[in-house]
């Protein structure tokens, strides 16, 4: 049953993503991205990942606010998207080749819902008594892999620093 629900949501997500990319109006394409993100959050909830569902909802709201606030207030709302045929055809052929190659790899993947790594068994069995955290995801992030999280915090800091520096009043010539 869960798989059919996820299947349906995925079909709608793909439709919304195509609508977001093909729409002529920037506002409606950004709203379509919002639809993709919220449906993704529901899919995460069905995949038994409540932590990620919460983060996805809130991050989606902030993404929408940033995109609308920064892009829509420009004087261009609609865009004409006349593309040359040859580069477009080349890109589509490239994507098609990628899809054909990936179909083989996807066929070799195990069935959805049976795969579980050995380290996950260790975390689930010993995680509570070794860290005391009932939320095993939190235990993995902040105890077993705290060094990873330190690196991720550095990436976050660098990205934000980059945005602030780019938008300084005067870029250094």
């Amino acid at each position: 049953m869960t798989e059919y629900i996820i299947f349906t949501f995925l079909v709608f997500m793909i439709l919304a993503a195509v609508a977001a990319l093909e729409s002529k109006d920037l506002l409606s394409s950004i709203i379509s991205i919002g639809a993709v993100g919220f449906m993704l959050s529901v899919v995460f909830l069905y995949l038994k990942a409540p932590d990620i569902a919460i983060v996805q909802v809130v991050v989606e709201i902030l993404t929408l606010i940033i995109l609308i606030r920064v892009t829509i207030s420009r004087d261009i709302r609609t865009i004409e998207d006349t593309r040359n045929f040859m580069p477009f055809a080349k890109n589509v052929i490239l994507l098609f080749v990628l899809a054909v190659l990936a179909a083989r790899a996807i066929g070799l993947l195990p069935e959805v819902g049976v795969n579980l790594s050995k380290v996950a068994q260790y975390y689930l069995l010993r995680g509570f008594e070794e860290t005391g955290a009932a939320n095993i995801v939190s235990a993995v992030i902040l105890d077993y892999r705290a060094y990873d999280t330190l690196g991720e915090a550095t990436i976050l800091f660098t990205a934000i620093l980059g945005a602030v520096v780019i938008l300084r009043r005067k870029a250094k010539e």
Binding site: P50, A53, I54, V55, N135, L142
Partner: peptide
């Protein structure tokens, strides 16, 4: 965050 879903990022 260590007892219920959530945590520092959310």
């Amino acid at each position: 965050g260590h007892l219920t879903p959530g945590g520092g990022f959310a």
